[in-house]
Simulated assay, not measured.
Amino acid sequence: MYIKDRTFVISGGASGLGLATVRDLHAHGGYISILDLNAENGDAIVEELGSRTKFFETDVTDTDSVQAAVAGTVAWIKETHKPIGAVIPAAGVGSPGKLIDRHNEPIPLAQLDFVININLRGVLDLIRLCLPHMTTTEPTEPDGERGVIIMVSSSAAFDGQPGQAAYAASKGAIRSLTLVLARDLAQNGIRAVSIAPSYFESNMTAQMSEKVRKSLEKVLEFPKRPGKGEDFAKMVRHCVENVMLNGECIRLDGATRMPSKL
């Protein structure tokens, strides 16, 4: 699928890996619908990038909020005549904690819900609300493609570390969802892939302590550095453009395998 003159719906697009993806797809001629809670950042990005971007203040855990953002995007598409090419639910959080702590107390359910509602429920909600506007677009030649869903999994889906119960569960679910979506949407000419980054520079990893960061850097194979937003965005672009990428969760980790202990 060509990027130019297609609309890309990106949640979590005002920062981190989502913002890197916004910049890359915009640079290649895409129209970008940015969904994020951070209105200040979102408005600044639109001011910077111009008329091929639109920002919608969105809480991905609130269906009404997501519905309003999708409706706003569809209204914008009617003005631009640039159909949806991809949905990229990149909003995500991590809130570490074992299911039972050292005092033999169970983790608060609200802490689990916080992670799962953003990382999984919010992803499913955005996809399901966007799909009716993708299945009705004109298919492209020669394969009859209408679009692609690109989700964000994690290395935690493969080798989750202690304290990542909710996070690994949510990202493992994204990994498992990928093939199901590809099969469900094949008849509509819509692909589904997911990307599983390892240790990347992001708002989430910026909250790590220096000790944890140094421990992670020791297990990196090559390159000997955290991934950058640009590395992730290039993979997203490749997923858009390569029609044979479908039903797969792609590890983007420089051969890193997370240890059981840091």
Rank of each mutant, 00 (worst) to 15 (best):
V212W: 12
E230N: 07
V212I: 14
V219M: 12
R146N: 13
I174G: 05
R225W: 08
P223A: 11
A233K: 01
S209T: 09
C239K: 06
S153C: 05
A166C: 00
L179S: 11
E241N: 09
S209P: 01
V243M: 12
D143M: 05
S155T: 11
I149Y: 12
F222Y: 14
A196W: 04
I190D: 09
G147W: 04
I195G: 09
P142K: 02
M208I: 05
E241T: 15
Y199W: 10
Q161V: 06
F158H: 08
G227V: 09
S153Y: 02
V240L: 12
V152E: 01
V148L: 09
D159T: 13
T178H: 05
P197K: 10
P197R: 06
K211H: 10
L216H: 08
S176T: 13
I195S: 03
S215Y: 10
D159W: 14
S155K: 13
H238I: 14
R146Q: 12
Q207F: 00
I195K: 05
H238M: 14
V219T: 15
V212F: 11
L181C: 15
F158N: 07
K214I: 03
A233V: 00
S194I: 06
N188P: 09
E201K: 01
C239L: 04
S198F: 05
S176D: 13
V240G: 08
G160W: 05
G144M: 07
D184V: 09
K211D: 06
Y167G: 03
D231G: 03
R175I: 07
T205M: 02
V240Y: 11
R225A: 06
E241P: 05
L181T: 14
F200H: 02
V148I: 14
S155D: 14
A156T: 12
K214H: 01
R175E: 11
A165V: 14
R146T: 15
R183D: 08
T205R: 01
M204K: 01
F232L: 04
L179C: 07
A169E: 00
K171I: 02
S170F: 02
P142A: 07
G189H: 15
G163W: 04
K171E: 05
V152A: 03
R146Y: 07
V193R: 07
E230V: 03
R146V: 14
K214M: 05
L220A: 12
S194W: 02
G160F: 06
A165Q: 06
P162I: 08
E210G: 00
M204S: 01
I190G: 13
A192V: 11
I149P: 11
F158S: 03
E217Q: 10
G144P: 11
S155A: 15
S198W: 04
V236G: 04
A156E: 08
N242V: 13
